[in-house]
Nucleic acid binder design. Structure first.
Lengths: 74, 74
DNA sequence: TTTAATTGTGACTTAAAGTCCGTTGACTTA
DNA sequence: TAAGTCAACGGACTTTAAGTCACAATTAAA
C-alpha cells in the first residue's frame, strides 16, 4: 500500500469519526471537494501543507494523525 | 513555525544522528542534493512520497518520524 | 422510484515541485 | 596554502501536484 493510500484511509477514518461529508471537510479545510476525493482514494501525492490543512480541519495534530498502525514500518 | 520547517528540522536532526551528510542521505533516498537542502531549510513543500523516501533512507517509519514534539498541536 | 445528498472521474491549466548544472563560503586537515 | 568536505544558493530547465470544472455514479431517504 502506497503512502498516499495510507493517508487517504486515515483521513476517511477520521472524517467519519467526526460525521462530516467530504464537502463539509473540504470547506472547513479550504480545499476543493474533488481534490479531497482524490486524496482519500490515494490518487493524489499530497504535500505537507495540505496534510496540515486537513489535519487542522480534522482537529488533530500531525503527530496524532500519523500515530496509527498504518504508518508503521512496512 | 510552518509544517515545512518542522519537517526540515526533524530530517536534519535524524540525519545528524546517523552521521550522514546531505549528499549521502540524498543519494540513499534517491532525491536531489540541492532539493534536500531546501527541504531541511523549510523552503520546500514536500510531498508524502518524498517524505516516505527520506524516512526509508533515515530508517524510520512515518509514525516515528512524526512522533516528536515538533508535530504536537501548536 | 424519484429526489436529493454524497462521492467519484477525466480532463485540463498553472503554479510549484523537483533536477541538473555550477559557484561560494565556512570549516578541516595535510 | 592547497585540497577536501560540506552546506547553501542560483539559473535554467522538466515534471508533477494543486486546483478547478462538468458530469457520472452511487447511496439515502422521501
Amino acid at each position: 500500500m502506497t503512502a498516499q493510500l495510507k493517508v487517504g484511509k486515515r483521513i476517511l477514518h477520521l472524517r467519519n469519526d467526526l460525521g462530516l461529508s467530504q464537502e463539509k471537510l473540504a470547506l472547513k479545510a479550504d480545499i476543493d471537494r474533488t481534490y479531497l476525493t482524490g486524496v482519500e482514494n490515494g490518487k493524489r501525492n499530497i504535500s505537507i501543507k495540505n496534510i496540515e490543512k486537513i489535519c487542522k480541519a480534522l482537529e488533530i495534530s500531525l503527530k496524532d494523525f500519523f500515530n496509527d498502525n498504518l504508518f508503521d514500518l512496512n
